[in-house]
Amino acid sequence: MKSTISNTLQKLSRRNEPYVFLVLMLLCVLIEIRSGQFFSSNNLVDIASAFAVPGLFAIGAFMVIISGGIDVSFPALASLSVYATTKFLLDVNYQGGVWLAILIALALGAILGAFNGLFIGYFRLPALIVTLGSSSVFKGIMQGALNSKQLTVIPIGMKNFGTSSLFIAKNPVSGLTSRMPVAILAFLIVLFLVYFLMRYTMFGRGLYGIGGSEISAHRAGFGVRNTKFIMYVMVGMIASLAGVMRVCMMQQAHPTNMLGMEMNIIAGVVLGGTAITGGRGTLLGCMLGTLLIVIVENSLILIGVPTSWKSVFTGLLIIIGTGVSAYQVSRMNRVRSVETVAKEVV
């Protein structure tokens, strides 16, 4: 019995999630001690609502990285599809609910994702290059063909969705209130679906398989091209959904303010223990890593760090975090080679 416990502990110590969780907790406690505000109900709600959109993006980025690819086009993709959706609904003076906006954005996201999937899946071009190119193309379509400008008015359905809340948290000390946006539900639903997909379907296990060894997956009779294609379509849809949530929550459509998010999102996913080379990582770790980045970006101000310093901390976090996991990998390899040698010598 004892040995199984120590075994589990040993297995845990080789994973990333516990470390990320520990760092996260330390940070939270530190902020709490310094400010006394971190664990207040309204701050937690604020963090949850700030987490919804990056969380959605991270889920998409996670799937791509697991499959051995990388996607830097999702902010441009989301911006384009949500901008086109909003513009269209404004032009036809749509007065109905938010569902139509979500549907149109999902459809557009699927088409744009298919563009990535076509070149990466079927032409087998490197994912980094394709998504660099497509991100440029999407930006071009949005700013050139659609002549995008900031839309300060959004359709009523989206506006209502953005202002409606599940509940309101009030801070008993300061009296500040925060709304839990309905958009968090969209995030939770997608999180649940993708968790199920990655853990309980052959499609999801296939993504892990492709990330581990594409040739083996192919020889096993797995449709590698189709799987990749469908995955990029899904990721396009998830990114578009994130875009809609963002516009609804901000109550305005700004064509460029999502651009540039890709780096921090990818950093969060990798911090959570997802191997940048693919095949290894859990959705839980990915969420913890992203949460860590979101908290650093949003809560440092609570301990008196001016906002202008937040990039310094994110940068340090990325370097130290990836450095630690790179060190862990090399240590594991060394341990493993010694172990196998020992095993063979016995």
Partner: peptide
């Protein structure tokens, strides 16, 4: 803005 479209 079409430039970025052309680049990509």
């Amino acid at each position: 803005y079409y430039i970025s479209l052309i680049w990509g």
